[in-house]
Amino acid sequence: MTVPATSVETRFALAKTVAREAGALAFHYFQQRETLVIETKRDLQDVVSIADREVEQLIRQRFAEAFPTDGVLGEEYGLEAGTSGFTWVVDPIDGTSPFVNGMPNWCISIALLKEDRPVVGVIYAPCHDELYAAADGLGATLNDRKLTLDPSRNIRNAVTGIGANNHVTPAFVAGIVERLLEAGGNFIRNGSGALMLAYVAAGRLVGYYEPYMHAWDCLAGYCLVNEAGGWSHAFPARGESLVKGAPVLAAAPGAIEDLRRIAGI
């Protein structure tokens, strides 16, 4: 089904504005992070603070004001269903662990679904003042510079991002890393899956794989990678599947087959 261009473009413009506003609030908290009360969720590596909650509240408020019938799914406050057919998918601060430890590897991630398909992806990295933005059929940009992936880049002449969390065993992740290294590749992990997906779209990484990831971590990055000319493994975004995790893999053209084989996808 074709999505009316104006309905997506209007929301796309809003997403970029809201991402910068949310980023400014998050950066304010980042500068005074020593005063934040840090709470744990699933384990000691899965943390949250008032910054995450207030940034998500701000984003929700802005979308409710402009598009009150849109749904919103956020990491901190869950799913609020809408009736418009559009659902915003938000991670207020992806990379909270780097955030609270004073590292710049965190971002604001905003995706827009039309039914179950990501049609807008915006990721803002405040510490670098980098705004990654993409919309269905409009391409992807970094600070308004068009992003187009180089097909000559592959796992052997570039770097792959790898993610891990306590939803999968250390042995499983170790197997992924072992297969990547045996195939002649190399990897990094910076603590923010959303930001590493943006790096794939920008050509800084040739691919990103995480065995278990949530919609708010990956859907904005998927839109960016796809619009930059890359490929992404389908994420189940319909019904209850939207709030559950799934494997995430995105790649530049020259790395698709190698990374699918390494990931077993």
Rank of each mutant, 00 (worst) to 15 (best):
A134M: 15
T17I: 08
S192I: 06
P126T: 12
N166S: 09
G193D: 08
F30I: 09
L138Y: 10
A174Y: 00
A202M: 07
E76G: 08
L242V: 10
L180Q: 10
E34V: 07
L138G: 11
D43T: 11
I50R: 11
R189K: 01
A81G: 05
P151W: 09
K41N: 01
H28F: 05
V55S: 06
R11P: 02
N226D: 10
P236D: 06
T6G: 04
F86V: 01
L259S: 12
T148M: 12
G161V: 04
P170T: 00
V225W: 11
G95Y: 10
I50C: 04
I256A: 07
G137D: 13
T10H: 04
A201Y: 15
L147M: 15
I188C: 05
V37Q: 15
L195C: 04
I108S: 07
G163F: 01
L36R: 04
L112K: 09
E9S: 13
V119M: 06
P98F: 06
V120L: 08
D70K: 03
S109I: 05
L224I: 11
N157C: 15
Y29D: 08
E257T: 15
Y29C: 03
A125M: 10
A158F: 12
E9C: 05
T87G: 01
Y29S: 04
L14N: 03
R145W: 05
H167W: 01
L131N: 08
D70F: 01
A125V: 12
L224P: 12
R62D: 02
R62Q: 12
A135N: 11
V120E: 07
A263D: 02
T83D: 13
G95N: 07
R60H: 04
A202V: 05
G193K: 02
S232R: 12
H214Y: 13
C223P: 09
V72S: 00
G95W: 10
F63L: 15
P126Q: 09
E56Q: 05
A251G: 11
A133L: 14
G121K: 11
Q61K: 05
A135Q: 13
G85V: 02
E227D: 09
T69D: 14
F235I: 13
N190P: 01
N165W: 00
Q45L: 11
K41T: 13
C218I: 14
T40Q: 14
V168P: 01
N226G: 07
I162F: 02
F99E: 12
G230D: 10
R238A: 13
Q57F: 05
T87R: 02
A133V: 09
T169D: 00
V177D: 02
